Amino acid sequence: MIPFDKTGLEEFSFGDAPEDTFYILVDRNVSPDGIDLERLKLADPRSFDATLSNLGCLIMLSKVEIDELVRRKELDPNKLHRSLYELAKEEGVL
């Protein structure tokens, strides 16, 4: 399992609406400087998931999904990185 300190949380927006904002838990062993947004933008839509995985994406959720998990108290908005890491661990993603 990946230790917490080898992960990062990144926020990307591809538009102005909440559903256009995404949070990505990143494996810093794979992408020490974070997700390469330019490479991600150029990804073939048919292999987008594979590109995300190759860039170190462990889990990606929209702002809408994050807000729902916060509302259900499954994520802490004040400790989003830590709580998303713990949720990913509980769900067997890590």
Rank of each mutant, 00 (worst) to 15 (best):
D36S: 06
V26H: 05
V30W: 00
P32W: 01
Y23L: 07
F14G: 12
L25I: 08
S47K: 11
R28K: 15
K41V: 05
V26L: 04
G15A: 07
P45W: 01
D27K: 08
I24S: 13
D20C: 08
N29D: 14
V30F: 00
G34N: 04
R46A: 13
D20S: 12
D33K: 14
G15D: 07
S47N: 12
S47R: 14
N29Q: 13
R28D: 01
E38A: 12
D20V: 09
F14A: 13
Y23S: 06
D33F: 06
G15C: 06
N29S: 14
I35F: 04
R28F: 05
G15P: 08
S31F: 01
L40M: 08
I24L: 12
R39V: 03
L40V: 01
R28E: 07
R46L: 10
D20F: 00
T21R: 15
T21N: 09
D33N: 14
L40D: 03
I35V: 07
E38K: 12
P18L: 07
S13K: 14
Y23G: 06
R39F: 03
V30R: 09
I24N: 10
Y23D: 07
A43H: 03
F22I: 10
Y23M: 07
D27S: 07
D36G: 00
V30G: 05
D33Q: 14
I35A: 00
L25V: 09
P32C: 02
F22E: 12
P32F: 03
S31A: 12
F14I: 14
S31C: 02
Y23V: 07
F22C: 10
E38Q: 13
I35N: 02
F48M: 12
F22G: 14
L37K: 11
L25S: 07
V26F: 05
S31H: 03
V30A: 08
F22D: 12
N29K: 13
F22Y: 15
K41P: 03
D20A: 10
K41L: 11
A43T: 04
L25Y: 10
E38G: 02
S47V: 14
A43G: 03
E19K: 13
V26G: 03
N29W: 03
G15Q: 08
I24F: 13
E38L: 08
D44M: 04
L25F: 09
L40P: 02
P18S: 09
L40H: 04
A17K: 15
S13Y: 11
T21G: 08
K41S: 08
K41E: 12
R28N: 05
D27A: 04
R39L: 05
E19D: 15
R46I: 04
G34K: 02
D27N: 15
S13Q: 14
T21M: 09
I35R: 02
D27L: 03
R28G: 00
L42I: 00
P45G: 06
E19H: 15
D44K: 06
D36N: 12
R46W: 00
S31T: 01
L25W: 09
D33C: 08
D33E: 15
K41F: 09
P45N: 02
V26T: 12
N29R: 12
I35M: 00
F14L: 14
Y23W: 15
D20I: 10
